[in-house]
Simulated assay, not measured.
Amino acid sequence: MQIEYLPLYVLIGVLSGLLGGALGLGGGIVVVPALLLIFHLRGIEIEVMTQLAVATSLATIIVTSIGAVRAHHQRGNMRWPLVWQLAIGVSLGAFAGAFVADWLSGPRLARLFGAFAVLLSLQMMFSSLRAPPPDASERLPGAGGLSLAGAAIGLVSSMFGIGGGSLTVPFLNACRVRMQQAVAVSSACGLPIALAGCLGFVIAGWGDPALPAGSLGYVYLPAAVGIGIASYPMARVGAGLAHRLPASTLKRIFAALLFIIGLRLALG
């Protein structure tokens, strides 16, 4: 299982945890490109390489999202009724997203991830997210609308191995949900996205002879363990850094790097 790569997986976990905690980003946007590079150097089959990176990223989100949910709940920002209304949609969408990713060729999925990363980097650089006025009333859709929105968020998030925060927070912000609550609800939705997406990727990749030893379906366990162990505590460190460092500057620097990485993947 080439355990000698474990230090690299731990390093990825450190970086994804720090950036996730400091900037409020899901670690998947760091984990997937890094794993693609390592898997390419290892000579893993190109047809399964991207699905392997995406599924493994989702597995690490299971660990980190549990800690994030606990922290937000303790701070009193979690709106559980809203979480439950979104949870069914995001779960079904995430489960389906794994099979969509499996249906796509590895190179095409990598290009789509690159295009998504470019769009996300532009959104980060020119983000207009702001707190709604204190007297603004929420404009949440009904149960059906929330389920449809959740399904779309889950589908895209699962396909690209992210926790969904880059989609859920802007959606809730547009519905005039208070920002602290939007971030908290988004972190809670990351858990069903990761669980359902992982299950789908395990089923979709089961028995594929092109997968390396140590894989459970498309989830590569050595990488998932190494990244998960490091990212969980480092997310707390990153959250602390957010109060000491200029987060807006860090976000723009990361957005610029993400743009370059995404463009490289999108262009193949």
Results as ranks from 00 to 15, higher is better:
residue 47 E to L: 10
residue 48 V to D: 01
residue 49 M to K: 03
residue 50 T to E: 08
residue 51 Q to H: 09
residue 53 A to C: 06
residue 53 A to W: 00
residue 54 V to M: 14
residue 54 V to L: 15
residue 54 V to H: 13
residue 55 A to R: 02
residue 55 A to F: 06
residue 55 A to I: 04
residue 56 T to W: 02
residue 56 T to D: 03
residue 57 S to W: 14
residue 59 A to T: 00
residue 60 T to Q: 08
residue 61 I to G: 01
residue 61 I to V: 10
residue 62 I to W: 14
residue 64 T to N: 09
residue 65 S to P: 03
residue 67 G to Q: 10
residue 69 V to G: 04
residue 69 V to E: 05
residue 71 A to G: 01
residue 72 H to P: 06
residue 74 Q to I: 12
residue 75 R to G: 08
residue 77 N to Y: 06
residue 78 M to R: 02
residue 80 W to G: 07
residue 80 W to M: 12
residue 81 P to V: 04
residue 81 P to I: 04
residue 83 V to C: 07
residue 85 Q to P: 08
residue 85 Q to L: 13
residue 85 Q to G: 08
residue 87 A to I: 03
residue 87 A to G: 04
residue 88 I to R: 11
residue 89 G to L: 04
residue 91 S to Q: 05
residue 92 L to K: 14
residue 93 G to V: 03
residue 93 G to H: 05
residue 95 F to T: 04
residue 96 A to T: 08
residue 97 G to P: 10
residue 98 A to D: 15
residue 99 F to Y: 13
residue 100 V to Q: 14
residue 101 A to V: 08
residue 103 W to N: 13
residue 103 W to K: 15
residue 104 L to K: 13
residue 104 L to T: 12
residue 107 P to C: 10
residue 107 P to R: 11
residue 108 R to C: 13
residue 108 R to F: 15
residue 108 R to K: 15
residue 108 R to G: 11
residue 108 R to T: 14
residue 109 L to S: 01
residue 110 A to L: 14
residue 110 A to Q: 15
residue 112 L to P: 00
residue 113 F to R: 07
residue 116 F to I: 13
residue 116 F to T: 09
residue 116 F to N: 07
residue 117 A to L: 00
residue 118 V to D: 05
residue 122 L to Y: 04
residue 122 L to D: 02
residue 123 Q to C: 06
residue 125 M to E: 10
residue 125 M to V: 12
residue 126 F to T: 02
residue 127 S to R: 00
residue 129 L to Q: 12
residue 130 R to C: 11
residue 130 R to D: 10
residue 131 A to K: 11
residue 131 A to N: 09
residue 136 A to H: 06
residue 137 S to E: 13
residue 138 E to F: 10
residue 139 R to L: 13
residue 139 R to K: 15
residue 139 R to S: 14
residue 139 R to D: 14
residue 139 R to G: 11
residue 141 P to C: 09
residue 142 G to P: 15
residue 142 G to C: 15
residue 142 G to D: 13
residue 143 A to T: 12
residue 145 G to E: 12
residue 149 A to S: 12
residue 151 A to W: 01
residue 151 A to F: 06
residue 151 A to P: 02
residue 151 A to Q: 02
residue 152 A to L: 06
residue 152 A to P: 00
residue 153 I to Q: 05
residue 153 I to F: 07
residue 153 I to V: 12
residue 155 L to T: 05
residue 155 L to W: 07
residue 156 V to Q: 00
residue 156 V to S: 00
residue 158 S to P: 08
residue 159 M to C: 09
residue 160 F to G: 01
residue 162 I to W: 00
residue 163 G to V: 04
residue 165 G to P: 04
residue 166 S to T: 13
residue 166 S to M: 14
residue 168 T to P: 03
residue 168 T to K: 03
